[in-house]
């Protein structure tokens, strides 16, 4: 089992060279690979499509803000149904460019998971078909809540938060023109 993993790391280094910045084993049996954020799409495509690895199930896309290290780390959890292997890919993003390429074309499940990361961490996923806030209101103006510099109770006072919340007009959503993705009204 361990043999296979070591050889997979070697194969990855053979193909991608310096884009693989490190690997470690966590908790005894969890393989973690650190990769360059600029190469994330190629590496994940390779892992999904290469015979013998077949990481066909993207379990999770999330991010971690360590606080002590500037920037945000995007984490992918992969699982191979045929080989029964778990793999964790990490991409550390520097704080001045929170950008990474989207994998929504590879896995459908990445669509909402990436939107959530964008909503809560402010990471821009380039090439994402529909990148907008998913959990917070569309006009939320206090920032990205899961960053470490975001206060637990938000930036505004409770009074202001309530006022802003009650100002949201749900009638807006009924007109198709104001909805992203709902703009095409057939007029025949």
């Amino acid at each position: 089992m361990t043999e296979g993993k070591v050889s997979m790391i070697e194969a990855m280094v053979d193909v991608f060279g310096s884009a693989i910045t490190g690997s470690e084993i966590q908790c005894g049996d969890q393989q973690v690979v650190h990769v360059e954020p600029s190469n994330n799409l190629e590496i994940l495509t390779w892992l999904k499509d290469t015979e013998g690895y077949d990481y066909d199930l993207l379990l999770d896309v999330t991010a971690v803000d360590y606080g002590s290290i500037p920037g945000v780390e995007v984490v992918y959890q992969l699982w191979s149904i045929t080989n029964k292997q778990l793999l964790r890919i990490k991409c550390a993003l520097p704080e001045d460019s929170l950008k990474i390429r989207s994998v929504a074309d590879l896995w459908g499940s990445a669509n909402w998971l990436e939107r959530e990361v964008y909503d809560l961490f402010g990471v821009q996923f380039e090439g994402h078909p529909d990148l907008r806030r998913i959990l917070m209101p569309k006009n939320y103006s206090e920032g990205h809540p899961l960053r470490k510099d975001f206060p637990l109770r938000g930036r505004f006072s409770r009074e202001k938060q309530t006022e802003l919340a009650l100002k949201q007009d749900y009638e807006d959503y009924y007109s198709p023109e104001q909805l992203e993705g709902f703009g095409q009204r057939s007029d025949d």
């Binding site: 066909d56 993207l58 379990l59 149904i81 896995w107 459908g108 499940s109 990445a110 998971l113």
Partner: peptide, 9 residues
């Protein structure tokens, strides 16, 4: 295959 792609579990 669609279900796997969509992340169904």
């Amino acid at each position: 295959s669609d279900a796997v792609n969509a992340g169904f579990t």
